[in-house]
């Protein structure tokens, strides 16, 4: 049986990294990002990367690490607001940026993973996003064509994984991780808990192991909170 389990993030990426490749990286903000795998990419020193990720980390955290070392040539993202270094590199022309609406980004990845080369959507019609894209009418409404995305490598973060590569995500740390796992030649998953075969009820698996080539346990990762918001005890109204 082919073994999917690797010891350590660096080992889990051995032989997979090269300059100018395209990498998908899961997460929303800093929630559910594959931070140990991103650090391993940083250590490898590969450059000229195209990175597909909803956001670009913050300075010094997540993809912010790869921006600091100038390993990223191009980002495909929906929102990059929280990163000063990103703005600097973009405005000086060192970094290319392709803004994609968040839903279009998710669907382009889903399509890429499902073998769908392109699809039509209403999102972005009449905006600069539609420039240069094919338009078509369906049922009297205008749609634009968007293309599927498929990467050389997808890096994802999960809560639990088993030796088969079956994954379970936790709460809103799921976000882009399961869809990215389907849309790359090779998917590597870092998991907080590597459990034995049979320990995950098959009915509760979010990502079946067919999509996952390698798995590495990263116990007790440091998790970052961007906006720590709390309510006072007794104030049940608060912000829902």
């Amino acid at each position: 049986m082919k073994k999917k389990i690797y010891e350590g993030a660096v080992a889990s990426l051995a032989g997979l990294l090269r300059d100018d490749m395209t990498i998908m990286s899961g997460g929303f903000g800093l929630c559910g990002i594959p931070e140990a795998l991103i650090e391993a990419v940083q250590l490898s020193g590969v450059t000229g990367l195209t990175v597909i990720s909803n956001n670009a980390g913050v300075d010094g955290v997540g993809l912010g690490k790869l921006l600091a070392t100038r390993q990223i040539r191009k980002m495909i993202s929906s929102y990059v607001g929280e990163n000063k270094l990103f703005a600097e590199q973009y405005l000086s022309g060192q970094l290319e940026l392709e803004f994609t609406p968040q839903g279009t980004l998710a669907e382009r990845i889903r399509a890429g993973g499902a073998g769908i080369p392109a699809f039509f959507t209403k999102t972005g019609v009449g905006t600069i996003i539609a420039e240069g894209k094919e338009e078509a009418e369906f049922n009297g409404e205008t749609f634009i064509m968007e293309r599927g995305l498929f990467a050389d490598l997808a890096l994802v973060h999960a809560y639990k994984g088993d030796p088969e590569g079956n994954l379970v995500f936790r709460k809103t740390a799921r976000n882009f991780n399961p869809v990215m796992a389907t849309a790359a030649k090779v998917t590597v998953a870092e998991v907080e808990h590597l459990v034995s075969a049979g320990d995950i009820d098959p009915d509760t698996i979010h990502t079946p192991g067919i999509y996952v080539s390698r798995i590495v346990e990263v116990p007790n990762p440091i998790k970052h909170i961007e906006q720590r918001t709390v309510r006072k005890a007794g104030a049940m109204e608060g912000n829902r």
Binding site: F28, C31, R170, K171, T172, I225, Q227, T229, K232
Partner: peptide, 29 residues
């Protein structure tokens, strides 16, 4: 919450924040 949740609850009590549970504004919920 478009990052992947229906049925968003209020902000947590102090000490009960969970980094895996945020809204689209990246606030703990």
């Amino acid at each position: 919450s478009e990052n992947g949740m229906l049925g968003m609850g209020p902000f947590p009590l102090e000490g009960e924040e969970d980094a895996d549970l945020i809204n689209a504004g990246k606030q703990t919920i």
